[in-house]
Design a protein around this nucleic acid. Sequence first.
DNA 1: TTTATTTACGCAATCGTTCCCGGAAAAATC
DNA 2: GATTTTTCCGGGAACGATTGCGTAAATAAA
Lengths: 348, 348
Amino acid sequence: MKYKAATIKDIAQALHLSTSTVSRALRDSHEISAATKQLVLDHAAKLNYHPNPIALSLKEKKSGSIGVIVSEIANSFFSQTINGIESVANEKGYTVIISQSHESFEKEVRTLHYLASRSIDGLLISVSSATKDLTQLKALHQYGFPIVFFDRIVEDIATHKVMVDNFQGAYNATMHLLAEGYQRIACITNSAHLSITRERVAGYVAALEKHGISSHPSLIKYCFHGGMLLDEVTAAVNQLMKAKPRPDAIFTTSDKLTTGCMRALKKAGVAIPGEIALTGFSNSELIELLHAPITVVRQPAFEMGRVATELLLQLIESKRPVKDFDTRILQTELITAPEVPAKKKGRK
Amino acid sequence: MKYKAATIKDIAQALHLSTSTVSRALRDSHEISAATKQLVLDHAAKLNYHPNPIALSLKEKKSGSIGVIVSEIANSFFSQTINGIESVANEKGYTVIISQSHESFEKEVRTLHYLASRSIDGLLISVSSATKDLTQLKALHQYGFPIVFFDRIVEDIATHKVMVDNFQGAYNATMHLLAEGYQRIACITNSAHLSITRERVAGYVAALEKHGISSHPSLIKYCFHGGMLLDEVTAAVNQLMKAKPRPDAIFTTSDKLTTGCMRALKKAGVAIPGEIALTGFSNSELIELLHAPITVVRQPAFEMGRVATELLLQLIESKRPVKDFDTRILQTELITAPEVPAKKKGRK
DNA sequence: TTTATTTACGCAATCGTTCCCGGAAAAATC
DNA sequence: GATTTTTCCGGGAACGATTGCGTAAATAAA
């Protein structure tokens, strides 16, 4: 199916003009007479002419598109972030190309190569939970390629970064559980490679210590695949349920882990919050409809997307190499569950 | 921040060769000596050379990317569909450019123009609930531009289409409610413009008639914005709750409507399924975690994405104009709620 | 040795657009 | 009427890569 778009040359031939004249007429140059301009414009409209963006890109040495790599689109947090990214990008006339790593390092690297060779002008990335080797990213970065990290940061690479105050978010959530009287709080978290994992676990530990409770390594479960594999989460939950003094609460550090944990508990027949309380990071809009009303840490995902994109475009459009980089920290919000069963109150 | 990629010319100059020789060496042409090939390959690796896809696109007159327009990414059904689209596209070496209409006709038209002028090779689209004017789409189609419709079809335009058996899905869901003894079943559905609305409502009506129940227009509520506006759904629910003989069940025809309806019922303090039963289309993975276990119609979203993309690529890569078009109908699945409260059984 | 055939490479056009020059005709100035 | 200045437009290179064609040298066949 061949579909041939009209070119400047078509207009030129039809009107017995040169391509330069047509080009200038279309760009409303001052050195073209009003009569000729009108002629060209009319004919262009008749042919439904649109400048070929690919030819433009080739000349301008920029594609007008930015790449985004996230682990999963089917994740409230990321889809909200993408909405933020899209809103800024479209405002500025950029196209957004979204790719998913599905938490696989190999897929991430493939995607990275693919996007980079696809002539995108810059990259927004939240690394996969499996990412430990940074050579590819570093190479791209040292090459002068504009990259902005969001959510899951890579500390080693000097560029703009946007994230939430993970420590504080986790701290608040844990403090909330402690305030409700829970004492033995477990934590199910992501791959230990991730910046967000370290920070969120640190916040959790700090909250416990604030209450004079020392954190138990056996109560912190790392899920390498970040909740992508339900089995992994289920295993973590089951191990926790078998601990000698059973934990009375679980704090989860991501969307998939929160819902995965809930799924595992439901399957195991453990009542929330009757037998165990649950609190975690989540941007799902369905939280309030869940069978167990839980308190969640919500991230300003849309805002994060906006900020990251603004920084990236700034990087792309900067005339000279940018040397000092921003790290923007946004605040999370603790959305407390509408009603906490009375029996739980004043448990301490 | 200028980032200059190595070109074929750089290699040619460094090695005192012509660009043609370098190009042929890289493409492993038989008319280049093994020695020269090795030289070129080595130098290309050293410079981290990658062919400029934009230059290629200009020559080949194809961009190697396809556009996708959906109403919302943050919707389980669409994000699953996109995963299917991505899987096929990537297999075949195509890039996917995703855009959202947010159920706005204006945004859809803007996006359409934008994508079309962005040199995509083809388009996959599920039209917005607000789309009534088809001139833009028709123009593009008559122009010979490859388009495949999925989910929300446009009947007037002759091209490949992929959808589920909406009639049957709705019929099954309604029959399920009837089998459980519900008699007065309302329906909350999408904009009346949409193909899926007509078909699903027809399935609902047919099931009622099968049981000798005539459908009441007052029990069918059309939400123009397709659940994007919670207020609209809430209003519909509230009206239904005030009907003289109150309906004892609601059938919803889309993801957003199902959860929106549940939200409205919860706010109104109406118990599900105690006071009213709910069944509807939904691809959300959180359904089983909701406070009210409901039966849902699930669509093979991933599969739909795959099939639609295969058809589109077939259209794009076809040598001559395609004249006869496929309409693929996939089957839905009724996922019945795990346990239905006994009191509801044998209500009739 | 002469002719025919490979082998191995360079030249130049092409894709669609922009933009630097250069220049003819018209208009303005002296 | 002669010169200068505008006005308006065309020629051609450039962006990065591919490819048909031409051709020198090297090799094979006569």
